[in-house]
Design a protein around this nucleic acid. Structure first.
Lengths: 248, 248
DNA sequence: AAATAAAACGCATAATCGTGCAAAATAACT
DNA sequence: AGTTATTTTGCACGATTATGCGTTTTATTT
């Protein structure tokens, strides 16, 4: 049997069953596991499969979400960069949805071992690319607008959690009015998350600082850390600092 | 025998079997392997075949599954088309993950009003594009491989549901062994879904029919309807029909 | 921490490849 | 036909590739 032929069979099996063991391939094709392993390595190098300990996986699952035309992506990246540093090994982290959070998810270091709990599909997908991170999805009805799960069931589940950190993607924040949003269901979720976390970190582009929206999530005081793309010493942020919020 | 004549024979053999060994050609045509090799090199230079170590392949061998594409997408579309027709307004539908299910989600009619409950992120995202469809996500730990939620919590939630339909993406199905899969957690989820549904519909490309895998999900009898891309009258499917499974 | 399984590594073996060369076959020309 | 030129073929040689085996290292499980 030709090598290429064998590799075609292997590729076929992998795409068919999504995953294969080297041992079963070896038995099936009647060649040594070494040969199978070498084939898998080649196929993996060509990007046709994903090699893992003991066998290989189909790559059709693991295609990432395109970081498409996100509004002020550069600012959000800078925010995410600061936020990432707060996460330590072993932590439980609650996160909402939104592009800033997704960016944060994207930037997590490869070796970070932590558990991320989220209501956002896109964030969950992003987290799932990191091998050492556990991802918990809060289930319930999916909100069409925000692509996060909402509802009583979700809130109940969040209440049962005690997380170390909670990253909130900010829609509007104002010193006197507090953190705000415009979707009632989303507000409930964010509130629950804040209550269930030891530390609340608000991620906001500077543009949204000192703006208001229709519904109040919580007081400014309920936030522990505020991260923007600006220098922490920036004029705009000082009122928040004097209110006792840590600025990064 | 003339060179041209011989090369014609070789080309014929290759197109017939999609591959050929230099050694077997040498024996067959009664010339040295050197000559065969030179012929293969010429044919390869003319672009008529693909030369590889030990023999040659037909051109049609490599082309086809480009790595990023979903495997046998056409078949899956045909399956999805049949499956969609089973869903009526007002129904509660449970679905697993997998590319066939995602295809199904993609093909839902715009005016369908139904509730879809799923453990799959990609399916959920696809459902959410349909304005009249309610999407419920079953929450729990996210499986890195299959991008579906798994675990006791998810199973508990599934058990609390009584759905009208349940679409199962098949990994392997065999009349005597039943429905099979290769991931323990996924098997648990699929089992729970089957138990919680009035009607179980298995979606499988014909290639997976009569194959086995490592773990058993349920007996073939537990399936109500089997959908493949083949004509329902196809030979391969008749044993399932005589077992009382409806074939579409 | 120990036991197990898989991967990586080096090495031996055999098959295949590429090259140069001379013999044979074919084509071309007188 | 006879001679020469050209192409094709088989063979010898070392180089390359593919594979399997035993050992060590690494990863995973208990």
């Amino acid at each position: 049997m030709l090598k290429e032929e064998r590799q075609a069979v292997i590729l076929h099996q992998i795409n068919l069953h999504n995953k294969v063991l080297s041992s079963s391939l070896s038995e099936q094709i009647q060649v040594s596991e070494d040969t199978i392993r070498r084939d898998l390595i080649e196929l993996a190098q060509e990007g046709k499969i994903i090699k893992v300990h003991g066998g290989a996986l189909s790559n059709s699952f693991h295609q990432g979400v395109s970081s498409r035309d996100v509004y002020s992506i550069e600012e959000k990246k800078r925010i995410a960069l600061k936020a990432v540093k707060l996460i330590k090994d072993g932590m439980f982290v609650l996160t909402t949805g939104g592009t800033t959070i997704t960016e944060l998810a994207h930037m997590l270091p490869k070796d970070l071992q932590a558990t991320f709990i989220t209501v956002s599909l896109s964030a969950a997908l992003e987290y799932s690319h990191h091998p050492n991170i556990e991802v918990i999805i809060i289930g319930d009805k999916l909100s069409k607008n925000s692509k996060i799960t909402i509802g009583a069931e979700a809130i109940l589940k969040i209440q049962q959690i005690k997380a170390d950190l909670c990253f909130i993607g900010v829609n509007a924040i104002d010193l006197s009015e507090g953190l705000m949003d415009n979707d009632w269901d989303v507000v409930q979720i964010k509130r629950a998350m804040i209550k269930s976390s030891k530390k609340v970190i608000a991620l906001s582009i500077a543009e949204k600082v000192n703006t208001v929206d229709q519904l109040k999530i919580c007081d400014a005081d309920d936030i522990d850390i505020l991260i923007t793309e600006l220098d922490p010493e920036a004029e705009k942020l000082q009122p928040y600092r004097s209110r006792g919020i840590q600025i990064l």
